[in-house]
């Protein structure tokens, strides 16, 4: 047997456990879910398909397809808002803050990133509630006569999400910014660019990979999250993950929950296809 073949066997042998695990506990469950989505519920028992009844229901029942729209709207708002807020933050930390304070500033800017997801949403419920800190301050200062309801509206969900994803994007954009040679900005300035032109024409385009990586992660994590809308958004309008969990709890409607999950999966895949070009963009 040739040396190359021995090496290949060895390599494949080392990779095998990981592949088997992923196959058994990721691919197989996913296939099971797709198969389940092709069945339907009669009474409390699942009748195996294949039929497309579940998908027909998802795209004709307003209470279901509205969930898709709600999720997409929230996710789009959060992604755009987070990028707009995070870019200047990352840029200020990377270029304006003196070098010795930089790591500390970054650590502070993403500190709550490391706390429990459930606790973070709960904290925002504390802050945004009718008796919470913000309403107290606003009514106390006489800016508002009456507390305004934010909690249990979409605004609360968006604020909670944006809080988390600003931190995530600050991390990805910051790491992109510090990898850029300082000579890019110097060269542009040397050739007569104003400070604003340096940012707009050179630095901003060069951070697109970091922005797109962060935006894609934001999209995936945001559209599939159940906790934040459940704790902060209430039950007035349901996002897709809330709908999925509702099917499991109420009637044990596994086919519908699976069908909605497949739809969720398709949306994430489409987002990936849209971003793939940027996620792989080579840096010169």
């Amino acid at each position: 047997m040739s040396i190359e073949r021995t090496e290949k066997r060895l390599g494949a042998g080392l990779a095998a456990p990981a592949l088997l695990w992923t196959g058994a506990f990721f691919v197989l469950p996913f296939a099971a879910m797709v198969w389940m989505s092709l069945g339907h519920l009669e009474g409390r028992t699942v009748v195996p398909g294949p039929d497309l009844g579940t998908y027909a229901r998802i795209f004709t029942d307003p209470s279901l397809y509205k969930g898709i729209r709600v999720s997409l709207e929230i996710t789009a708002t959060v992604t755009v808002l987070s990028v707009l807020l995070a870019w200047p933050l990352a840029w200020i930390i990377a270029t304006r803050v003196p070098a010795r304070w930089r790591r500390l500033a970054l650590l502070l800017a993403v500190l709550p990133f490391w706390t429990s997801y459930v606790v973070r949403s709960y904290s925002w419920a504390l802050v945004l509630g009718e008796k919470g800190v913000i309403m107290n301050a606003l009514t106390g200062l006489g800016i508002l006569a009456e507390p305004v309801q934010i909690l249990a509206t979409r605004a609360a969900t968006v604020i909670g999400f944006t809080h988390f994803f600003v931190m995530l994007l600050t991390l990805t954009i910051y790491s992109n910014l510090v990898q850029l040679s300082p000579n890019y900005a110097r060269a542009a300035e040397d050739l007569g660019a104003s400070r604003w032109q340096v940012i707009r024409l050179v630095i901003l385009p060069l951070t697109l990979p970091g922005v797109m990586t962060g935006a894609f992660l934001t999209f995936v994590l945001c559209i599939g999250d159940y906790i934040t809308p459940q704790i902060l958004g209430g039950n007035n309008e349901l996002s897709l993950p809330q709908l999925i969990m509702l099917q499991l709890g109420r009637r044990g409607d596994y086919p519908l929950a699976s069908g909605l999950s497949v739809v969720l999966m398709v949306m994430v895949t489409l987002a990936y296809a849209a971003c793939a070009r940027w996620l792989k963009m080579e840096r010169v």
Binding site: S181, N183, Y184, R186, A188, D190, G192, L206
Partner: peptide, 20 residues
Amino acid sequence: VGPKLRPTTTMFQDYALFPH
């Protein structure tokens, strides 16, 4: 006077060509 207003230009060691 800043680099922008000087009658000099620099060719950098890493060239700093704008990749985009």
